[in-house]
Design a protein around this nucleic acid. Structure first.
Lengths: 238, 238
DNA sequence: CGTTTGCTTGACAGCATTCAACGTTGGTGG
DNA sequence: CCACCAACGTTGAATGCTGTCAAGCAAACG
């Protein structure tokens, strides 16, 4: 977990259309290059931050893959999200000025460190940034609402189908295949995120394969019948 | 659903310590009186806004009680939250500049209309407001994370117990009893929010009464054994 | 006073969990 | 290079919680 002295420039970053600077004008882009203090590299398994730590920065995933999790009572953990390149980590820490979850790298990763007081300062000057930051916060609210609907409303197989479709979309918008993917997380982590047990995840994968919706070999997943998967994800419960 | 010409002054509002102005200095308070454009009154059953409508304002509950809901596919609805005095509505609309849910008054209510562009403008001048608004957005993210944990991790009875405790806390911080409350929503709405069926909600209430955790008569609920309820809410699943 | 809406309760079915055993993969060290 | 171990994944059988369907009751409303 080393600190990279090199400052990152959003204006030259090829993730700028996915990340915080999304939609900003070129002029605004110039102004926000002072936002990112440094990059930070993490090895697989490293914690970017932990619940309870003072909140000072948010983080943008530059490369790699993360999970966020909370520990409930007796050591059990629950995964609250997965983050890939261009997505932000730490937004939940703003409210109480302490992080409320752990962020763990699921593979070797790199993040941009965005000092929060700096962000507040710059977003007063740069209207586009203020607007965009609010959008990002709001989008996270909407995303979680979607997860709530999933967790509360639909059966295990539909949850997994929706999860895979969502993962595919996010990969696709990053220029990857979207139908052929390598999962970075274990069955247990998927299950924890979706509110089901790892055995149930495994069974759902097997059944999807039987029904020719997917080809699954361990963490390699290929979506064979996306329409079928989509039908399953949106079906009525029961 | 009428528009009240009288402008509301946050600086004189007795909800200011619960609402958006929470924690602001007296000096800042003066500056944000221009925030609230008008009040709006709603009758029970009225929609404050609906999913898909253009987003222009957020709303602060001045009095009364609301639910937010989304309609999934074929007319079924899912409740995504309940809001009482001092809480904000419409934050999810920022991301796409359209509301993503319906907000329905569960009793005759009044809200303060906060124009969003005005809010952005003022929060550039008033540092405390900028900070507080970010906190509010972040708090909503954290709140939803809590619901996700509930929905994904625990049994029906634990969900209801946690729900009642949360409701009690919020009532208490508004000067009400917290242990003796009148529910403003139906069993079906509670169930929809908690991801369980209304029959299950009803059974859980009955069982809580058998076990002397609650006294329930229709929508009148009295918490008899708060510690016991808390134990139930945090217990391991299964 | 009747109708509508909301609430309670019972019986049964179904899906997910639990417990358990076994298979696979990848890394380590002999 | 192979053996071995640990972590991860798959599958089966039994249990149990929650959903479904149905009936009856209570409260609210006009």
């Amino acid at each position: 977990m080393k600190l990279d002295a090199m400052r990152a420039a959003c204006s030259k970053c090829n993730l700028r259309e996915l990340c915080l600077p999304m939609g900003l004008t070129d002029a605004d882009l110039q102004h926000i290059d002072r936002l990112v203090g440094a990059r930070r590299s993490l090895r697989r398994g490293d914690a970017l931050f932990c619940a309870g730590e003072p909140f000072e920065s948010i983080f943008a995933v530059r490369s790699g893959f993360f999970k966020t999790r909370v520990s409930v009572d007796d050591g059990r953990e629950r995964v609250t999200g997965f983050q890939m390149a261009g997505e932000l980590l730490g937004l939940d820490g703003i409210s109480a000025e302490r992080h409320t979850c752990d962020a763990i790298a699921l593979e070797d990763s790199e993040v941009c460190v965005i000092g929060y007081s700096r962000l507040e300062e710059v977003s007063r000057d740069v209207l586009g940034l203020q607007r965009q930051f609010h959008r990002v916060l709001s989008r996270e609210i909407v995303r979680e609402q979607g997860v709530m609907l999933l967790l509360g409303g639909v059966r295990a197989e539909a949850r997994l189908a929706a999860f895979l479709l969502n993962l595919g979309e996010r990969l696709r918008s990053r220029g990857f295949s979207g139908s052929s993917m390598v999962l970075r997380m274990t069955r247990e982590e998927i299950g924890s995120y979706l509110g089901i047990k790892l055995e149930t995840v495994s069974r759902a994968f097997s059944r999807f394969q039987e029904e020719s919706l997917l080809e699954v070999r361990q963490r390699n997943v290929r979506v064979v019948d996306e329409a079928g998967l989509r039908r399953l994800a949106f079906e009525a419960p029961g």
